[in-house]
Design a protein around this nucleic acid. Sequence first.
DNA 1: TCACTGACAAGGG
DNA 2: ACCCTTGCCAGTG
Length: 108
Amino acid sequence: MGAAYIEQVHDVTRLVPPGRVTTYGAIADFLTLGSARMVGWALFNSLTADDVPAHRVVNRKGELSGRKYFRTPDVMQSRLEAEGVVVIDDRVVDFERVFWSPTELLDQ
DNA sequence: TCACTGACAAGGG
DNA sequence: ACCCTTGCCAGTG
């Protein structure tokens, strides 16, 4: 697992529409490669790539589990709120409706 | 090489 | 709805 895998995770993450969120597992399933844990690892390696909207990736409960890895812990929430996503107690409100899966790309 | 650690997830109780 | 276990796999010491 090297840079190629990381790039794939970054590419998928770039496809998440503003105002929507996806999950580590959804990305792992879509790539049929690696695991949800590795998606988190790949996103950790995206901190320098400012064109990757890593704030749109949350865990399966809609929790902002990666917030502490941003420059400051509030960045993830404020970026989501700027896109209209409501966050309370580090959790996306109405998560089922805001959730977006990369598999939607195939439905067209 | 072994053990442990995670931006995780699914299923059972 | 919460807690626990199991599977996951690259990094790290």
